[in-house]
Design a protein around this nucleic acid. Structure first.
Lengths: 139, 139
DNA sequence: CATGGTGCTATACTTTAGTATACCGCTATA
DNA sequence: TATAGCGGTATACTAAAGTATAGCACCATG
């Protein structure tokens, strides 16, 4: 029960949990940052988009960031970039089938966030709770 | 079907989705960064800890970061900082009951991350899948 | 009364994320 | 043949996140 002096019975997270943290870091790396989820959401809601479409739809993003984030998302197999070889080449961005699995993550982030707002900002949440639980939309 | 020239039928994310993004940003703000989840996980696995305990257990963190992150997590009601007024004052950090709701988020980040690693790195995952599905530990 | 543990804070620095602004080649249209 | 849209890149900057290192007041133990 008593601790040996200077040492602890606490076990280092990395050691104990081993590979537990790594996939979490992966996921966070993919979804965190200011623009990734807005872009994914835009493609979910609007379907296939061109570059300029996304620039308009993801309000406030600069072309540099958009370009970079699209590359990242493509590398992670979440979106597709297809070149249609029409006259005046058209480029189309869309979510992959695999990308659609991101839905579970995003909706968990969303629903926890909703509850958190209630916890932090609301005083009495008993009346609002039912409208919260049914809050999940298509995405 | 045809687009009006120069304009798009695409709808801006912020407008369409309205308040959809805000809680997602909240959640990401709370859980992203290099140390928040390791700290939470440490408290989940080890129970109540002191500051130096956490410094040892969350391998690599500096006292400055630890101090800052603990304040953030406390502000967000996820952890408790209690001062035990023993001789030689003891300080104990622990997860709040509310903080335990973070489990759903963290385990979603984890399980998606596991699947993602398989998708990206593995060639054939049929043999490893069963050890994956039972991979969820207590947290 | 030194040594070492606890719970931090302070200062200075580097690295990463994001912004601002300009510009480019190509094509389609008036 | 000018104008405007498309799909971006280039350069320079600011701000936020994280690191490195030192130190301090308090207490307990030998």
């Amino acid at each position: 029960m008593a601790e040996v002096k200077g040492k602890t019975n606490k076990t280092p997270v990395e050691e104990t949990v081993g590979s537990y943290m790594t996939p979490i870091r992966d996921t966070l790396e993919i979804f965190s940052g200011k623009w990734k989820i807005p872009i994914i959401t835009a493609l979910f809601f609007n379907g296939t988009c061109g570059f300029k479409d996304l620039e308009r739809v993801v309000v406030g993003i600069t072309p540099k960031m958009l370009s970079k984030e699209l590359k990242d998302l493509e590398m992670n197999l979440l979106i597709d970039r297809t070149v249609e070889d029409t006259r005046s080449v058209t480029i189309r961005y869309s979510i992959t089938e695999y990308g659609k699995t991101a839905k579970s993550v995003i909706s968990e982030l969303h629903s926890w966030g909703v509850k958190h707002r209630k916890k932090v900002f609301d005083i009495d949440d008993s009346t609002v709770m039912e409208s919260c639980d049914t809050d999940e939309k298509d995405l």
